[in-house]
Design a binder for these strands. Structure first.
Lengths: 339, 339
DNA sequence: GTGAAAGCGCTAACAG
DNA sequence: CTGTTAGCGCTTTCAC
């Protein structure tokens, strides 16, 4: 393509030496005389020589590139994961090819095909919600290209993985509400069929249990969006269920709930304290600011990439690793102590 | 790398034909007999043959890959741009290599080097805030790799570009406030040295002018963040400047202002109507919801990529194009008509 | 200390 | 209809 890209041959021709000599000189091979080295490096500099990474990949049978499959890049959590991936990859001189599945199984499949065709040295995957059939992922395993799952894993699939301890995070979020003196804490829960929703609910219930508080199903509501939260709050208020705390499965839900509570004249955190689960960067701009679990997307990206690079660089096989990240509870205005 | 990747040679050997025959059969070349084609395709299928994209790139001198340099992926605007890029690239069977500059000039430079070394067929750039020296970008131009700027351009640099009409958007935002009956509209402005800030302020002023309203410098405040907005509002209130409308240079600023106004008992939009400029997805979750300019990041990504692909596929040179996208004003609760 | 040659996987011009 | 050959840019044995 682009004419004007200097190759090793160009340098060799000009200097009347062989391409192999140039190649060696450029990598400072001990066999080459100082004179030749100097001449080669000077000319390379002058002609702005750049090694052709594609030729190198073909030769070396490795591309110094890792592939990433991400459900949807526009979510703050995922973009921060990418940011972490990118940073670690950059440090290790690896490129990153990003593919979005847009939550479609077909697209995920096509992405994997592309990545494999491009000889990526490893693949990071967060599976799409629509993926039911895992044969394309099995195919990666068979191709001996290292594979690491992040966030959305496939239970039982043998591969390295990085996940968040949803149970623990929810436990701590709920415990925090208990610690500041709340006794009837509602939970706005996610879909029952998603692992993530189950774990968060279980953490909530365990915290109540451990504190000797009753675990009541009537305090758990099916609400995992801004709008559903509004409705759920209205339902709570109408039915006369008295609550003094709320742990929501995500931030948007928490924010929807806060707004509706406030509209009804309920003071936050004095009357009802609220804790969310971070999937955005909303927590700092609400009024009051929202206590929330920080999912550490960036860290997840770095850890997953480190796992992958380790696998790529290792000669022999070793057992799969699972890293469980602890999510931090960031305490903000919506749940400060208020006796 | 990965053993077990089937190559054309493997198929050829097994079928006792030459690699070229296999190559031709696979691309349905008319010269090849139906029998051979069938045999080849069947075996290819069976062995799960995938063409090696790296070898193809080397051969063809084009990689079917475009490089993207993005300041920071975690911003909603930028991640939505990527989403647009990705979608168009995917349709055209192009891969996308993403590099973050993290607003650092060095990193941007290194990224470009990597992209060129990887023989990308074109590059999309939004320049980092720190970039003062443009030699690395000039280098792209010299290398004959097509280059398209999106959002952050370099004035005077000859290349295709896609930008948003900040002036027009601000004009319409301000005009909207005037249309709903506001007469003393403040502007919370961005840094004076950034083009973007200048244009937004100019659009604001022109709208006032055209409506026959006085253009007062005392109504323009240096405030482009959540926190600065708080302080600016307090200043406004203390100084007794009466305002009934506010156009902020971005959403976070608008939200900070709204909250402070509300805390002081001022009703939005009845007493003061507020309009932001979207750089996030906050507008739907504030109370009231925030009227804001939608920057159409996704569209910017698609348009920029189309421009780039056109340039990549075109044989002859043609004059640089500049696409100016109109940003929509999305009217929400913070500025509904209230006589 | 340097060069020639082979080869990574694929294609295409040229032969037959 | 199919095979041979050369070559994309680079590295790396093997010779000298």
């Amino acid at each position: 393509m682009k004419k004007g890209f200097t190759t090793i041959k160009d340098i060799a021709r000009e200097l009347k030496v062989s391409p192999s000599t140039v190649s060696r000189a450029l990598k400072n091979h001990p066999d080459i005389s100082e004179d030749t080295k100097r001449a080669v490096n000077e000319l390379a500099e002058k002609l702005n020589y750049q090694p052709n990474a594609v030729a190198l990949s073909l030769k070396r049978q490795r591309s110094n590139t890792i592939g990433v499959i991400i459900p949807e890049i526009v979510h703050y959590f995922f973009s921060s994961v990418i940011s972490g991936i990118e940073d670690v990859a950059y440090e290790a001189s690896f490129n990153v090819i990003i593919c979005q599945s847009n939550e479609m199984a077909d697209r995920e499949k096509a992405n994997i095909k592309t990545l494999l065709a491009n000889q990526v040295d490893g693949i990071l995957v967060s599976v799409s919600k629509a993926t039911k059939d895992f044969s394309h992922l099995e195919k990666i395993k068979n191709s001996e290209v290292p594979l690491v799952f992040y966030d959305r894993i496939i239970p039982g699939f043998k591969a390295d993985q990085v996940i968040i301890d949803d149970f623990d995070a929810s436990y701590r979020a709920t415990k925090h509400l208990i610690d500041i003196g709340k006794k009837r804490i509602a939970h706005f829960a996610g879909p029952k069929n998603l692992l993530i929703g189950q774990h968060r609910k279980q953490g909530y219930q365990k915290a109540l249990e451990d504190a000797g508080l009753p675990v009541e199903e009537e305090l758990v509501f099916d609400a995992d969006s801004f709008e559903k939260a509004r409705l759920a709050v209205l339902k709570v208020l109408e039915s006369g269920i008295a609550i003094d705390g709320l742990f929501a499965v995500n931030d948007l839900t928490a924010i929807g709930a806060m707004q509706t509570l406030q509209k009804k004249g309920i003071k936050i955190p004095q009357e009802v304290a609220v804790v969310g689960f971070s999937d955005g960067r909303f927590s700092g701009i609400t009024d009051p600011t929202l206590t929330s679990v920080d999912q550490h997307g960036y860290e997840m990206g770095t850890v997953a990439t480190q796992l992958l690079l380790k696998r790529i660089h290792s000669k022999e096989d070793y057992p799969c690793e699972t890293k469980v990240l602890n999510a931090n509870l960031i305490i903000r205005g919506s749940s400060v102590f208020s006796p």
